[in-house]
Nucleic acid binder design. Structure first.
Length: 892
RNA sequence: GGGAGUAUAGCUCAGUUGGUUCAGAGCGUCUGCCUUACAAGCAGAAGGUCAUUGGUUCGAACCCAAUUACUCCCACCA
């Protein structure tokens, strides 16, 4: 038979993926089996596969394939996310390249381009997932903006609004005065910039008299009166000042409590407020408060009921509140106001100062914090329920340490701002109209419905639906993602449909820990609100894939390998295995291409094991030998033992451990031991019974490995035996652990050690593996595997002896002495040295044991079992020491 | 600034309720082998003061405290 000695994944992977698709093996329909559902964390629709996806989706595939083989109705639903911010940014950039400015387009025109873009690049990432072997039910592929998902999102918005859980409020946004739009936090780039820190004088209001002795503190005075000094980097914003704040425990300013100061150059008297927010060390410890132009100031303004004075126009020029500076650009104003204040003697000093200033990623303009009306979801009750189900382990986190992070966030949660100043996304279904010069709002599923509501509320005010003005903003992308596990099965629009009842709740969510708040927490909230049930039972947090220097993978660093190229190089199975081996849950993965080599080598190892087995000539006449019978028995038991461990690992989501154990079971136990044990001598046949047993074992080993390495296992499974048309390993039963005899396994461990001892002896003495040696054993030794020892150690005969053998090399396994007579001269010096070292070690060991046993507190305090073990150790050590001493004496 | 986490062999990680000499695995390294499935392989070996310092205990890699270093998340420095 001619089978290539190297496994070639390329043909195999193509072949089996098409086969699986063709036989509809990934597709799921509700039936009477138990469901096992995973919903994919939807990747950005215009994204391309990176290493993070590889890891995440490999894990999902492992779990879903295993569930399928365990007899569940496994359903893995794929889909993509419209990702408002990043997709819109990409479309804007694309338009710019074509010489089109977004501002010149209408909303409709822009969206047309955006959909065009989506059609062109959307879903590339899903195609790439197929290369990885992902067993998604592709018939169910969804998009967060397709019809079902769109309607679900809008319905939820309307519903929450009607329940009073959605409201409109004020919030500080990052305003780009050049693009005339708000930009997201992610689009703000903080740059170091060299500016000045201006120290301004705020005089106390006329008539204010401070008590004696306050001069040496923060309060100064000159001919014009008493004043305090406030430091600022943005002197132009004093036009919007409505307070000055100091720390309540700052002794320099205690006298100021309840007093007022005058904003320099503006003449407005503002109150002094006291709050612990102020950093006493910074500047003079006094802070000017401009609620309209700084988020912290805004919060303080809310807390103390301060007036909010917005001094800017949208384009960054001063408005009428800017007094004589109205119409000037904000930076020109800064220069002018400094000049004017200096002239008026209101500036104490100016220092150089370096700080970080936010710039717009799109236009590079300096970001202006600006108050604006936004939509919010009330988090109170939703958060409470979401916290509860994680605290009481209805939902389990793996690893559990993320519960802490989760708790902290939910306990300090703020309302969720869900409006975004974007076009690409779900447009907010709020409609505005005017009644007596006042703007009124209705929220409805669509314009017609809105019109109907308006007619009820204010009959005759609005003539037609077209007159209603719909909100220009789109919803935060997470406002659609949080419904994903429900909306995928149409559970929002049709809450009682068969699919949602069957597939929901899903089983496990696999995601990265950095979106625990954005996504995980909110899905839990939505699940509680709309299904009254958690969306998943387990959350498996993957690590972040880094390069081998520990840096995050990023495009700009160019340190992210192309997963598709990796698959080309090492095969999908190799890459999958490489990723999983170094990826315990929640740990970051320092990724190095070379770890995929181990996976590739393993594929090859299995391939060659198959080659070996398939090239044996099978004899029907030959009786199974005793040794072969024992070998089969041992392998079966060993497999049962490891399976037990693997099952436990899966229960605890220790996937790397489970894979490593499977790896060693196949490579070490099966290939290195079992196959060597039963391998017939060259040119001789193997008996049928052993052969069939071996095929059976091989078959089950492939099933164990299948979730990790789907392609190579399918290929080999088909090679091992004739399979009916349409058969596939992916729908075979996963082997279960069965009873095994621990004694027999322990005996074999001893056998292994004896064989290793003999081999080691050869190695260290330069004896050829071809030279047959004899073995004499003094002490306990299982005879069951003697034939195996002879075969694998190339031992001629094994004899049990009562006394030590003169002139032989020796080694000890526990308290058992093994002697190997050799023809060559024994190097007495070296032997003595080795024996003395062992003796020294054994005596040291005995000493520690004796110390323990001599300690009354130990003997009385420790459990009996532990003491008994110590006594046994003492006895073993003593007999070992006696044996070693005897050997040393014999040599010397 | 607030919160969370990590520290064990050259690298990546196990180590379950404190109790066997418990200090482990894989990779890498070194030595010897082209042995008839596989050199993408086979047979062996070496490698660690369990970050540091104290404490609790008969007994600590494990529990407690402090220190040091690193990582992540959130908020952002007037």
């Amino acid at each position: 038979m001619s089978i290539a000695s190297k496994y070639d994944p390329h043909v195999v992977e193509e072949k089996w993926y098409s086969y699986w698709l063709e036989k509809k093996l990934f597709h799921s329909e509700p039936d009477n089996r138990k469901s096992y559902t995973i919903v994919i964390p939807p990747p950005n629709v215009t994204g391309v596969l990176h290493m993070g996806h590889m890891l995440n989706n490999t894990i999902q595939d492992v779990l879903i394939r295993r569930a399928r083989m365990l007899g569940f109705n496994a359903c893995w639903v794929p889909g993509t996310d419209h990702a408002s911010i990043s997709t819109e940014a990409k479309v804007v950039a694309m338009l710019k390249e074509r010489g089109i400015d977004k501002r010149d387009l209408s909303r409709e025109q822009f969206l047309e381009y955006a959909w065009e873009w989506k059609e062109k690049y959307g879903g590339i990432i899903l195609k790439q997932l197929r290369k990885l072997g992902a067993s998604c039910d592709w018939d169910r592929t969804s998009f967060t903006m397709d019809e079902v998902r769109y309607e679900s999102v809008i319905r939820v918005f309307v519903d929450l609004y009607n329940k009073g859980l959605i409201y409109r409020g004020v919030r500080m946004v990052n305003w780009d005065p050049q693009a005339l739009t708000a930009v997201s936090d992610e689009e703000v780039i903080y740059k170091e910039s060299h500016g000045k820190l201006f120290y301004l004088r705020y005089y106390l209001s006329q008539g204010t008299v401070l008590p004696e002795g306050s001069e040496e503190s923060g309060i100064k005075s000159d001919e014009k009166g008493q004043y305090i000094v406030v430091a600022t980097t943005r002197p132009e914003t004093i036009l919007g000042d409505t307070a000055v704040c100091v720390h309540p425990e700052d002794s320099r300013y205690t006298a100021l409590k309840g007093k007022q100061v005058v904003v320099p150059g503006v003449g407005r008297a503002v109150q002094i407020i006291m709050d612990e927010y102020v950093d006493r060390e910074f500047g003079t410890g006094a802070l000017k408060i401009t609620p309209a132009h700084d988020i912290n100031d805004y919060n303080l303004g809310m807390k103390y009921g301060l007036e909010t004075i917005d001094i800017f126009n949208d384009n960054g020029t001063l408005n009428e509140k800017g007094l004589q500076y109205a119409g000037m650009d904000r930076f020109a104003c800064r220069k002018q106001i400094v000049k004017d204040l200096e002239a008026a003697g209101l500036i104490e000093k100016i220092e150089d100062y370096t700080n970080k200033v936010g710039h717009s990623e799109r236009t590079d303009a300096v970001i202006e914090p600006k108050l604006s009306a936004q939509w919010f979801v009330r988090m109170g009750d939703l958060a409470k329920k979401a916290l509860e189900v994680v605290e009481n382990d209805t939902i389990q986190f793996h690893p559990a340490k993320f519960k802490n992070t989760y708790r902290h966030w939910l306990e300090n949660i703020k309302d969720w701002c869900i409006s975004r100043q974007l076009w690409w996304g779900h447009r907010i279904p709020a409609y505005y109209y005017d009644v007596d010069g006042k703007v009124e709002t209705v929220v409805a599923l669509n314009r017609e419905e809105a019109f109907r509501l308006v007619c009820e509320k204010h009959p005759g005010v609005v003539k037609s639906a077209d007159e209603l003005r719909q909100d220009e903003d789109a919803l935060d992308t997470w406002f659609s993602s949080w419904l994903w596990p429900i909306s995928l099965f149409d559970g929002i629009r049709n809450p009682d449909n068969e699919e949602i009842k069957y597939y929901y709740p899903t089983e496990t969510l696999i995601t990265a820990p950095d979106i625990i708040f954005f996504w995980v927490a909110r899905m839990i909230m939505a699940g509680e609100e709309y299904r009254n049930e958690v969306p998943f039972r387990h959350v498996y947090f993957t690590g972040i894939v880094r390069d081998k220097l520990g840096r995050k993978m990023s495009k700009s660093l160019g340190n992210s390998p192309d997963p598709i190229e990796l698959i080309e190089k090492f095969g999908a199975d190799g890459v999958r295995m490489g990723m999983l081996l170094t990826a315990p849950a929640g740990n970051d993965i320092p990724f190095d291409e070379s770890i995929c080599e181990q996976g590739r080598n393993f594929s090859n190892k299995i391939w060659n094991a198959m080659r070996l087995v398939k090239c044996w000539e099978v004899s029907d006449e030959l009786q199974q030998s005793y040794d072969n019978g024992v070998s089969v028995q041992w392998m079966e038991m060993r497999m049962a033992q490891v399976l037990e461990e693997i099952e436990k690992d899966f229960d605890e989501f220790r996937l790397s451990e489970a894979l490593m154990k499977s790896y060693k079971l196949v490579w070490d136990d099966f290939c290195s031991w079992y196959l060597e044990m039963i391998k017939p001598a060259y040119g001789t046949p193997i008996d049928r019974e052993t052969y069939e047993a071996t095929i059976g074992i091989f078959d089950r080993l492939m099933r164990i490995l299948h979730p990790f390495m789907p392609f190579v296992t399918e290929e080999i499974w088909h090679t091992l035996a004739e399979r009916p048309e349409g058969a596939s390993i992916m729908v075979q039963h996963m082997p279960h652990s069965v009873f095994y005899d621990q004694r027999m396994l322990d005996d074999f461990e001893m056998t292994r050690e004896i064989i290793a001892g003999v081999r080691n002896l050869r190695n260290s003495k330069g004896l050829s593996p071809k030279e047959v040696l004899d073995l004499y054993v003094k002490g306990q030794c299982p005879a069951m595997f003697n034939g195996i020892i002879c075969k694998l150690g190339n031992v001629g005969k094994i004899e049990s002896v009562a006394d030590k053998v003169e002139g032989a090399l020796s080694f000890m396994i526990g308290t058992t002495e093994c002697f190997v007579p050799v023809s060559l001269n024994i190097d007495k010096e070296a032997e003595l040295k080795k024996l003395n070292e062992e003796l020294k070690y054994a005596e040291g060991f005995l000493a520690t044991v004796m110390k323990k046993l001599g300690n009354e507190k130990f003997v009385n305090g420790a459990p009996e079992k532990v003491v008994a073990i110590e006594r046994q150790k003492k006895a073993d050590a003593e007999s070992k020491i006696a044996a070693l001493k005897a050997q040393i004496e014999a040599l010397g």
